[in-house]
């Protein structure tokens, strides 16, 4: 038998996590957590709900960064004026599950689950995001997203850790983002190839690039080799480079989709980068 708790503050929540440790389970939107409970993969003694922690339900902009609270839902994100400026984020979040799933599901839950094919996680990877975590013993920590995942469905969090927010740079003039997902069906499908890009363009040349890849390696990954190569290139040169081959960070695992992923990832990369480029040059509202 399990009990449930609805802490009203972060302090109350981390006290509970400290008390129950691995016997506790945080349930945020429930999309992944309830399935784990129902299939017996998780049998928590204490279910800790995020629903009452008002301090984690806000999206704020501070010092040039967007801070998305740990209990913010995708629906909230899609209606937020600051998120709407981020083209790639809107596409990624709008592609998750279906409208009823997005009412409850959260980005904090998405990174917490650590699925390699998670849309929001992949976009956050391509946004240079940081995950804010707190626990009673260790206090507050900020973990860059490319240091957050260990392997498929495993991240660096300990049982007593709580994700309090996800942070990523706010969009500025000259900056653009893009997101491309290749799936078998238009909606409600897990992507086979996910590519996210955030780039900065000055006088027709790329000055900074952040690229995320999902559904290829064991976790979502940063494609540093692509990022380095894109800096200094013109639009046409960047397009040609993206098409030139599979990024080495893709780390494809053997599966029946391996060949498909090999030939489509460069195309998806090109599309994501060009989408971001267009926004950076003001061609997208």
């Amino acid at each position: 038998m399990s009990e449930f708790f609805k802490p009203k503050t972060v302090k109350e929540c981390i006290d509970l996590l400290d008390q129950y440790g691995s016997k506790a389970m945080i349930v945020n939107g429930g999309t992944d957590a309830v399935e784990k409970i129902n299939t017996g993969k998780a049998q928590p003694e204490a279910v800790i709900l995020m629903t009452e922690m008002k301090e984690l339900k806000k999206i704020t902009v501070k010092d040039g960064a967007v801070h998305v609270g740990g209990a913010v839902t995708y629906l909230q994100m899609l209606k937020n004026a600051e998120i709407k400026k981020n083209q790639g984020m809107m596409i990624a979040v709008g592609a998750i599950g279906s409208p009823p799933v997005r009412v409850m599901a959260t980005p904090a839950g998405n990174v917490g689950t650590a699925a390699p094919s998670a849309d929001c996680t992949t976009m956050l990877m391509g946004s240079d995001a940081k995950i804010h975590v707190v626990s009673k013993k260790e206090g507050e920590r900020v973990i860059p997203i490319d240091k957050f995942f260990v392997k498929t469905y495993v991240n660096v969090l300990k049982p007593e850790d709580l994700i309090t927010e996800v942070e990523f740079p706010a969009m500025q003039p000259g900056m653009g983002s893009g997101y491309v997902r290749l799936t078998r069906r238009k909606v409600q499908d897990i992507g086979k190839v996910l590519v996210s890009a955030t780039i900065e363009v000055k006088r027709g040349r790329c000055t900074k690039a952040v690229i995320g890849l999902g559904a290829l390696n064991a976790t979502a990954v940063r494609a540093y080799s692509v990022e380095e190569a894109l800096v200094g290139l013109s639009r046409k040169e960047a397009q040609e480079f993206c098409r030139s081959g599979l990024p080495k960070e893709a780390g494809l695992r053997p599966s029946r989709y391996t060949h498909y992923k090999e030939i489509t990832t460069p195309v998806a990369l090109e599309r994501a980068v060009m989408m971001a480029w267009d926004q950076a040059e003001g061609k997208v509202k």
Partner: peptide, 15 residues
């Protein structure tokens, strides 16, 4: 759920 369509199979009753 509070007027919004959601899934009851991924919703705990305590939620």
């Amino acid at each position: 759920y509070n007027g919004k369509a959601i899934r009851s199979c991924t919703l705990l009753t305590c939620m």
